[in-house]
Every structure is written in structure tokens, then in C-alpha cells.
Design a protein around this nucleic acid. Structure first.
Length: 826
DNA sequence: GTCTAGCATGGTT
DNA sequence: CAACCATGCTAGA
């Protein structure tokens, strides 16, 4: 008897189990050696039925290829359920789960399942295992009766373990009952004080089979099901530990249930020769021994089988998910440094001894190879690993903070792969909610996000949208309106949608670690306090959301002006669509570009095509020749680069516009800024120095000569500073006006400031304390003057004197921004 | 003045 | 409490 740490690597709890030769290792110990006999095992045992997070790669005895089926929530379970066995994903031969020979099996479990409900298992598991030697199982092994689901008291003759998956996942409609896991918990808590059995971990409960509490656990666990009881996977967490458990949930559908899998294979998307590829996202603990028990679950790869399949394609290579990381602001920032979790870097990347590190070639999901500098910084007697030069890649994948980058390895080549998972897709729930808005308004101006809660409800049009949004958040997303103020909204959009599953279905329950992350954002943490710039980013996120809001095309809006703000009012509710990039060709033809949610290829679409929130190549009804993910990207990498660059430029324009005060712009400019989703220029036919080329803003009529319509394409055209062409003169004139307005505002501000200072001075006269601020700022003044009041007066006037400098600087910055936004250089 | 590389700091786990 | 890691800070280019 020896003490072992929780084999799952999940709870870290120590439990006492009998550890003897021949005892198969648990999922978390896959490919480990038995520390007594030294035998390597590659077999999971019966109880992985309750445990979804194990990952194991087993070799198919027939073809020698690795079979990924350790994850019970993925293909293995489904296949098991559906076909009574598991097929090797490579050779398609049934492995029958590489079942453990009966003599090795924990008969207690199998027996108990076969028994009538509530019957207590009668056989000691441990004794069954003694002395048995695990062998490689042949693919032709019959299905293991121990590998069964903990119900099946439905009086059918169907073999245990062959429940149809739609049944297994069907939400039970009956009432009453508690979850399987909680039963286990209660039982375990009573029966074993040593083991910290958690309410969520069925596996751990089962593990207790080996010890004394086994019978209690099993009897309770197995007594719960009624004939209508179904097995449900449920994601639960504790801190960083996200877990999927299977619970016997009765009554209404739990909020924690994973979405019900599609009933037919055809709905599953890509198929392999096994027929089913799981789209369920499950954390996979490290598969390699050296990092075992080191890698925090938050870094466990959650790649789905389907994604794995996509990455590996038709090749015979094995994709090994290594780790993933939710990108922080600094990861996604312009510095181009992606901080790597130390344990992951040391485990999966080549060892480096010098801080300079070495260049690392990593292939992205599209097959493009990037070279990053893998290096480290010495830090507190430790190291901090970073990947440098990731900006182009991040941009190419359009990643931002909150998205997840994944790292995998392709064996046997050993090639490193980099993938990603977006967190920022608006889900259909939101869409539905928004569709219910009776009337909404689209602002023509980028609206400061931070100002929304205060301002929006006052604006007739916005209020409907906002309140509906609030309603949707509170009801369907279980959010409270107070968060709306805090800037967390953007994070809800991203994080909440992180609950989306690979199949696009929205999981009502966000994995709670993500909950945690979203809680962290906007907390009191200094690190995460939203500064002005971050607020701007949030605003842009809001603007991006606006981009997704599509007015009904057939309906003309009514434009109303409220307090100098223009609003477009629509009688019909908006539609939330997938974000796309609009372009205008030289020919004047407008088009839009959308990225497939499945293969991430870009497809050209008609400009008036309204994209649903989720869009894949298959939905490309306008161009059947481009309606499959297998068809190459419509854009060459260079074209894509151009497109993204132009989109980015446009965002910069918006950013600049957002920084300027609204007064600085007349309505036409605002118009153009707010409607900037059209990209100037043509991504395929970039025109060199095409000063003469004009870009028609979509909202402006042909022939319009406004400042926007006459500007050259993005980034094109440099005018001479002395140029007196119409465009330049217009721009100069506008800048002049801008400057004047700026100065006027500044002088007003100065006046206010002066008043305030005077008030301060008078009030401080009554104070007896020394004004430390004056001392700090102007000690020399203080020295010269014996009077505190005088010193303060000097200080104030000094401050005022400095203001014009600030003014001119900021005005210059404004001009430069305006210059940029107008794509003209002088 | 701006950008970048590298180090330091401190919040979080 | 220590390790990790996100991000701030700054010297130098």
C-alpha cells in the first residue's frame, strides 16, 4: 500500500490505493511506468468512462498508428456508444477500445452495472487486479463489459455500453434526482476522509473503488439512475481546474450541460474513416511524462478531435496537442512578444541555454510557416520564456487579447504547429435576443464605450438596443447590468463566447476558468485596470460590434439629430452578422470578404450579402465554386496581407477619430468615419501612387466630392507640402478650422482652470496646513516668497503658462492623426 | 522623439 | 511563501 497523488492530475489529492504490479495506470499516468514493476502501460481502465479529461494515445495493434481515444468525451465515447467499439482513427479497424482483458478488469464495476439498480457491487476490485499483467490488446478484442455506462437499466437487451449517443446526451425531461457526481461526492465524503473527493469528479469517486469506500460509492452512484436517466457531460471547475464529468442529470436541462451532439453524422462536419469526429472541447492533460503534474490545467490543450483532424488532414502524421494559452493584452500587443508558460516552453520547445535562444519554425493552421525567436529572460533566478516576432502571425490570424493560441506537434516529423481559437464571435443567443428588439438605432458616430451606460439610455434609439442587450445579458447570459459600466462588456462578448463549442453551438455554461478570467478582467487589480487607451480599445470593440449589426438592407433609415448627434433609425430590428471586410475595386464594384469559421479561408462575397454570425464555406451560396473548405483560399497570402492591412488602417482611422472630439468634425466627416467599413483601394489590384484614384464612400452618392470621397486609397499618394490641389487645400482648410476650434476649446478650458485655481487659492487661504503640492512643484518659488498664498498663486500661473504648449502639441497630434486618417501626407 | 530589448516589479496563484 | 508571468520601466539605438 502506498500513497499516490490523484492519478488524474486533477485534484492533487492524495488517496490511498493499493498499488501493485499489474495495476493499470490511470489516465493521467498514461505512458508512465509503474513505479514498482517498471512496466509501461498504455491502457486506461474502466473508470475513464467517468472522466473526460484524460488523454491517452494508444497504438493500434493492427497498424501501429496511434489512436487517440483516451478522452471519453470525445470520439471514443461516441464511437463506443454508437458502434460498441472504437475504431482506430488511422486504419479504421475496431480496437474495441483496446479493451482490458477481463481478468484484469475491475469486475466490481462491471458487475455492479449489470446488476439491478441499487445493487451493491460485491467483488473487491483490488483483488481482481492482483498479479495480472497488462498486455497490448488486439483490435479484435471483444468489448469490455466493464466499459459501460453507469446506467442501462432500461430493460433492453442492448449490450451495456451501446447506448445510442443521442440517447446518452438527450436532456432528460424528468424531474427530481441529483447528479451522479454529487452522489459520489456525498458517498465519498462519508466513506473516505483521506481522499478529498469533490462533488464534480466522478472519476475520483470511482477510483475509490480500490479502497474501502468502493462499495458505498458504487452503490450510490449506480442506484441513482432510473430507466430514464441519462448520462450527461458537465463542465465544472475549481479554480484552474476545468473538468468535464458525467452526471446522471434528471429534471430540466442543467445549465452546465454541454450541447447535445448532432444526431446524424452528416451534421458533424468532417468525418474520418471512423465516421465520427468529436467536436466537444475537452482539456487534455499533458501526454508526456516530463511535464506530468507540472502543467497547470489552464494550459491543457482543449483542441477538439475535429480540429485535430483538420490539422492533420490526410497525412499519416499524428498531431499531439501540447498546450494552449489565452493571450494577454501584452501577448496580443504590438511588442510582438508572446510570453510562454515556463513549464510548457521547457517541456515542449527545444532547450535553450542562452537568453538569445534560437529561431523556431512554427506552422500555422493554414500551413504557413513562421519563424519566431524562442528565447528567455532571466528573471528572479528563473526564466521567462517568450516567442518574439509573433506580430505578423497574430495579425494574420486576427488574434487579440482573450483569444487562445494553441501549440501542437506533428509526429513523427516533430514539426511545431500553432493554432488559435477565437473568443470573440457573437453567438446566436445574442442574435436572437437582438432580433427581438422592436426598434433600434445605429449611431453614425463611434460611441465611446465608457459613455454608453450614462448616455445611451437617454438616446431614444439606443435605449431600446441597450435595454434589450441588458435584458439578454441578464437573462440568457446571467450577467448583471452593473458590469456594463465597468468595461467588462467587451469581455463578456469575448469570454462568454469562449463557451462556444467547435460546432458553433453555444454552450450555456462558460467554462468556469474562463469565468474566472473574466472576473479578473476589470477587477481591482492594478494590472487590469482599464486606462484610457484600454477604454479606447473597448470602444473599438463596441465599434466592432456595431460592424456586426446590420440594418435590414431593404429598409431605408430615418435620420434624426439629437443634440448634434445623428442617428439612423430603423423600423426593423438589426441583425447580428459575422464581421466581414468590405472592399471597393477600381471598377467601383463593391464586395466583401469573409473568413470561414471552419477552415479560416477567406471568401469573396457580394457586398450586399448578409452574413450570419457563423459562416462557413458551405454557406457560400453565391459562388458554388467556392463553397467548400477544400477549395483553396480566394486570397493569396499577399492579398490577404493587403486586405488585413487596409482593415487595420481603417481601424486606426477610427481610433484617431475616436480620440478627436466630436466637435472637431463636421457631420460629413463623422459620417465617413463611422461608416468606414469599406476599405479604400483594391486588395488585388493595388494602384501604385494612385493619387487620382478616388474612393467612394458607400454612404456618399456618386460624384460626391467630400473629403472622404476624394481621398486616395489607403496608404497611397503622397502630396507635396506645397501642393495646392483641391484635396490638399480642403484638407489644409479643415486643419486650420480644427486648429482654431482646438484653440478656442483650450482657451475655454484655461479659463475654467483659472477659475478653479482662484477658488483653490481662496479656499486654501483659510487652511493652516502647508500646501505640499506647491512645495513640491515650485520649491524655489516658495523660497523666494514667504507667503504660501503667493507661492500657490505663482504655481498656478506657472501651470497656466504651460498650457499653451500642451495645446499646441496636442493640436499637432490631432493634425497628424487627421492627416493619417485622410491618407494624405504633406 | 520614437522604438526596442531587456530587466524589474508586483499581482496572482 | 515562492514561483509564475503580465506588464511597467528605462537605457540605448
Amino acid at each position: 500500500m502506498e500513497s499516490k497523488i490523484c492519478m488524474n492530475g486533477i485534484c492533487g489529492a492524495t488517496s490511498s490505493i493499493e498499488w501493485k504490479k499489474g495495476w493499470p495506470l490511470r489516465s493521467g499516468e498514461f505512458a508512465s511506468l509503474c513505479d514498482k514493476c517498471g512496466t509501461a502501460y498504455e491502457q486506461l481502465i474502466f473508470c475513464d468512462l467517468f472522466h473526460s479529461e484524460d488523454t491517452g494515445w494508444r497504438e493500434c495493434i493492427s497498424c501501429g498508428k496511434r489512436l487517440h481515444c483516451g478522452c471519453i468525451a470525445s470520439s471514443s465515447l461516441l464511437e463506443l456508444l454508437d458502434s460498441g467499439g472504437i475504431n482506430c482513427v488511422i486504419c479504421a479497424r475496431s480496437s474495441q477500445r483496446h479493451a482490458t482483458p477481463n481478468h484484469e478488469k475491475p469486475k466490481a464495476f462491471g458487475t455492479s452495472v449489470s446488476n439491478s439498480v441499487g445493487e451493491t457491487p460485491s467483488t473487491s476490485l483490488g483483488s481482481q487486479m492482483n498479479g495480472s499483467e497488462p498486455n497490448k490488446r488486439d483490435c479484435s478484442d471483444s468489448i469490455d463489459p466493464a466499459l459501460v455506462l453507469p446506467h442501462q437499466s432500461d430493460n433492453t437487451n442492448r449490450p451495456i455500453g451501446q447506448i445510442k449517443m443521442e440517447e446518452a446526451f438527450h436532456p432528460a425531461g424528468e424531474s427530481g434526482g441529483s447528479t451522479f457526481s454529487s452522489n459520489l461526492c456525498q458517498a465519498s465524503a462519508e466513506s473516505s476522509k483521506n481522499a478529498k473527493l469533490d462533488s464534480y469528479n466522478g472519476y475520483k469517486g470511482v477510483k475509490e473503488i480500490h479502497g474501502s469506500p468502493v462499495q458505498t460509492n458504487l452503490s450510490i452512484a449506480l442506484s441513482a439512475p432510473s430507466p430514464n436517466t441519462k448520462l450527461f457531460p458537465t463542465t465544472v471547475d475549481e479554480g484552474d481546474l476545468n473538468k468535464t464529468i458525467y452526471s446522471l442529470q434528471q429534471g430540466s436541462r442543467s445549465r452546465n450541460l454541454l450541447p447535445r451532439p448532432p444526431k446524424s453524422n452528416s451534421a458533424l462536419g468532417p468525418e474520418t474513416n471512423t465516421g465520427i469526429i468529436s467536436q466537444i472541447r475537452v482539456a487534455r492533460p499533458p501526454v508526456e511524462g516530463r511535464i506530468k503534474n507540472q502543467l497547470l490545467p489552464r494550459y491543457w490543450p482543449r483542441i477538439t478531435d475535429q480540429e485535430l483532424q483538420q490539422i492533420s488532414g490526410d497525412s499519416n502524421s499524428t498531431i499531439i496537442p501540447l498546450f494552449e494559452k489565452v493571450m494577454s493584452a501584452s501577448d496580443a500587443g504590438r511588442i510582438g512578444r508572446l510570453v510562454l508558460p515556463k513549464a510548457c516552453a521547457e517541456a515542449y520547445f527545444p532547450p535553450i541555454s542562452q537568453p538569445e535562444g534560437l529561431p523556431l519554425r512554427i506552422q500555422d493552421v493554414k500551413g504557413k510557416e513562421w519563424v519566431f525567436q524562442f528565447r528567455f529572460w532571466p528573471n528572479n533566478n528563473s526564466r521567462m520564456y517568450v516567442l518574439e516576432g509573433v506580430t505578423p502571425c497574430i495579425q494574420s490570424m486576427q488574434l487579440q487579447a482573450g483569444d487562445t493560441v494553441t501549440f501542437s506537434r506533428m509526429d513523427p516529423e516533430g514539426k511545431l504547429l500553432m493554432g488559435f481559437r477565437k473568443a470573440s464571435t457573437v453567438n446566436s443567443t445574442q442574435e436572437n435576443r437582438l432580433s427581438a428588439i422592436p426598434k433600434s438605432v445605429f449611431s453614425t458616430e463611434p460611441t465611446s464605450f465608457g459613455a454608453m451606460p450614462e448616455n445611451l439610455p437617454l438616446m431614444s434609439g439606443y435605449s431600446g438596443l441597450l435595454q434589450s442587450f441588458k435584458g439578454s445579458r441578464e437573462s440568457s447570459m446571467n450577467l448583471s447590468s452593473k458590469h456594463f459600466n465597468s468595461g467588462e462588456f467587451s469581455w463578456y462578448l469575448t469570454e462568454k463566447n469562449g463557451g462556444r463549442n467547435a460546432d458553433g453551438a453555444f454552450s450555456p455554461s462558460m467554462p468556469s476558468s474562463e469565468h474566472k478570467r473574466s472576473r479578473n478582467i476589470g477587477s481591482k487589480s492594478k494590472r487590469l485596470l482599464i486606462d484610457a487607451h484600454a477604454a479606447l480599445e473597448l470602444k473599438l470593440s463596441w465599434e466592432e460590434l456595431q460592424d456586426m449589426l446590420r440594418p435590414p438592407l431593404s429598409v431605408q433609415p430615418t435620420t434624426v439629430t439629437i443634440e448634434d448627434q445623428e442617428f439612423e433609425e430603423y423600423e426593423q430590428p438589426p441583425v447580428l452578422g459575422k464581421r466581414s471586410i468590405f472592399t471597393v475595386r477600381l471598377s467601383g464594384e463593391q464586395e466583401q470578404w469573409a473568413q470561414c469559421d471552419n477552415c479560416f479561408k477567406w471568401r469573396r462575397l457580394p457586398a450586399d450579402y448578409l452574413l450570419p454570425p457563423q459562416w462557413t464555406c458551405q454557406d457560400n451560396i453565391s459562388d458554388h465554386s467556392r463553397s467548400s473548405c477544400s477549395i483553396p483560399d480566394d486570397l493569396t497570402p499577399r492579398e490577404l496581407e493587403n486586405l488585413l492591412k487596409m482593415d487595420k488602417d481603417l481601424k486606426k482611422q477610427r481610433s484617431a477619430a475616436g480620440q478627436r472630439t466630436t466637435q472637431a468634425y463636421d457631420s460629413s466627416d463623422l459620417d465617413s468615419q463611422a461608416n468606414g467599413m469599406s476599405i479604400a483601394g483594391d486588395i488585388r489590384e493595388p494602384v501604385a501612387a494612385s493619387v487620382a484614384t478616388t474612393t467612394k464612400h458607400p454612404r456618399h452618392r456618386p460624384g460626391c466630392s467630400c473629403i472622404v470621397c476624394i481621398q486616395p486609397p489607403s496608404g497611397k499618394g503622397k502630396h507635396n507640402p506645397t501642393c495646392t490641389c483641391n484635396v490638399c487645400m480642403t484638407v489644409k482648410r479643415r486643419f486650420k478650422t480644427l486648429m482654431m476650434r482646438k484653440k478656442k476649446r483650450q482657451s475655454e478650458r484655461e479659463a475654467v482652470l483659472g477659475q478653479r485655481n482662484q477658488q483653490l487659492m481662496w479656499s486654501s487661504k483659510e487652511e493652516t496646513e502647508v500646501d505640499s503640492f506647491s512645495r513640491q512643484v515650485k520649491p524655489e518659488v516658495e523660497e523666494r516668497s514667504g507667503s504660501e498664498a503667493l507661492a500657490r498663486g505663482h504655481s498656478s500661473s506657472n501651470q497656466l503658462q504651460k498650457l499653451p504648449e500642451i495645446t499646441s502639441t496636442s493640436a499637432a497630434r490631432d493634425i497628424s492623426e487627421a492627416e493619417r486618417s485622410n491618407k494624405l501626407s504633406f
